[in-house]
């Protein structure tokens, strides 16, 4: 597993929000590496900086300091368009509130991501159907998001993140808006995506029931990594051992 390079590597990330009321520093030096084939859980109290970190890892926000490389590409010195290009090609997102385009069907939402990633008219339909099949939603392909259940919407958004095979999938509380059953299904799907396609998956979560799907867990508190743990290979329960 360590033979492969990291899909994502962040070093000493800090973030400062400047405002008249005073500066806020949600990230105070965070380093994260994501390896292919692994699902990493990012946990921590509310306001600890999880979403901020995820936005930076996904090239949506620029860090105030620190370095980031995704799939071997450094973000140093990239313009807004350069960042957009990098996240388009290498990052798939899953959002808490799905963020599907309401005027497009499930299939079209997946096609949209493929179009953004430069898929041609010839290959896109196959790739889109493949992605929908991977989340077991082929039968709902032509349904508008407003007619889909929350769990189905989140599965479409996973298909959208998956289509075009990005190096990293980043999910911010993907189960928060779902009931337990659907939440478990979505987590199982994300774990499967990590294993089957050997891409790095990072999931921000509050929900302890999702622990069993993680290979690693990072705890963040007040903008700093509080602990790292790796699941013991032999164990099938929810125990994580401190990372080496």
């Amino acid at each position: 597993m360590t033979a492969l390079p990291y899909m994502l590597e962040a070093r000493d990330i800090t973030k400062v929000y400047r405002s008249e009321a005073g500066d806020i520093m949600p990230l105070k030096g965070v380093s994260v590496e994501l390896a292919p084939g692994e699902l990493t859980l990012l946990m921590g109290p509310s306001g600890s900086g999880k979403t901020t970190l995820l936005s930076i890892l996904g090239c949506i926000l620029s860090p105030t300091s620190g370095s980031l490389s995704i799939a071997g590409y450094s973000t140093a010195g990239l313009s807004a368009e350069g960042m957009a290009d990098l996240r388009r090609r290498h990052v798939g997102f899953v959002f808490q509130s799905y963020n599907l385009v309401p005027t497009l069907t499930a299939l079209e939402n997946v096609m949209l991501a493929l179009d953004l990633r430069g898929a041609s008219r010839a290959e896109a339909p196959d790739l889109a159907w493949e992605a929908l099949a991977a989340v077991r939603l082929s039968h709902r392909a032509h349904v508008m998001p407003s007619k889909l259940s929350g769990g189905e919407k989140q599965r479409v958004s996973i298909a959208r993140a998956l289509a075009g095979a990005p190096s990293v999938i980043l999910a911010d509380e993907p189960t928060a808006a779902l009931d337990s059953e659907n939440g478990q299904a979505v987590m199982a799907l994300l774990a499967e995506v990590a294993k089957d396609t050997r891409r790095a998956v990072l999931v921000v979560t509050h929900d302890h029931r999702t622990l069993k799907y993680g290979d690693r867990m990072i705890r963040i508190e007040d903008g700093r990594i509080a602990s790292r743990a790796r699941r013991r290979l032999s164990e099938v329960n929810n125990e994580f051992a401190p990372a080496a």
Binding site: P36, A71, R117, G118, A124, G164, A165
Partner: peptide, 23 residues
């Protein structure tokens, strides 16, 4: 650090054959 590594080394199967001219 992998920042200077050859990017192709981490390309995965299933990626679209990114936009070529005339496609």
């Amino acid at each position: 650090m992998q920042t200077t590594a050859e990017p192709a080394s981490v390309a995965l199967p299933g990626q679209p054959t990114l936009a070529r001219k005339g496609m």
